[in-house]
């Protein structure tokens, strides 16, 4: 089981952050999720970052990029990614809460 990101559907609500954090700690917070929103607010530029065991998915408005560990991104999303580097990677849980609570289908589970 893995998570697929469709950034075009993202509305930047952050329900995935709450859902993943709840899965980990059974509390409401945004701080322990493996998935994180990023936003350049004045530019309406936003998307989703998902930290995995060996890489990170950058779900940017212009498309999805897989960033390998240690690689730099040429986008500002790379700079925004720093806080997520300290977090636990996605453990590919089944029936993932980030997917269940995403209201738009921007995150889906795939085999």
């Amino acid at each position: 089981m893995a998570i697929k990101v469709d950034p075009e559907k993202c509305i930047n609500c952050g329900a995935c952050e709450l859902g993943c954090s709840f899965y980990r700690d059974e509390v409401f917070t945004t701080m322990s999720a493996s998935v994180m929103m990023y936003r350049e607010e004045k530019k309406n530029y936003f998307g989703i970052m998902l930290k995995r065991e060996d890489d990170m998915i950058l779900g940017r408005p212009e498309g999805v990029e897989i960033q390998k560990e240690g690689e730099e991104s040429d986008s500002d999303a790379g700079a925004s990614a720093k806080p997520i580097l300290l977090r636990e990677p996605c453990d590919n849980c089944k029936n993932a809460m980030c997917v269940r609570f995403c209201p738009t289908g921007s995150l889906i589970e795939v085999d």
Binding site: C13, G14, L18, N44, Y45, F46, E62, P103, T104
Partner: peptide, 25 residues
Amino acid sequence: EADFNNPFAYKFFLKYREDPSVMKS
């Protein structure tokens, strides 16, 4: 765009100093 954990994305962005089809930053 939506508010925090709001499934209803009623807010929207108007771009007038750049082509609105530009998705990159």
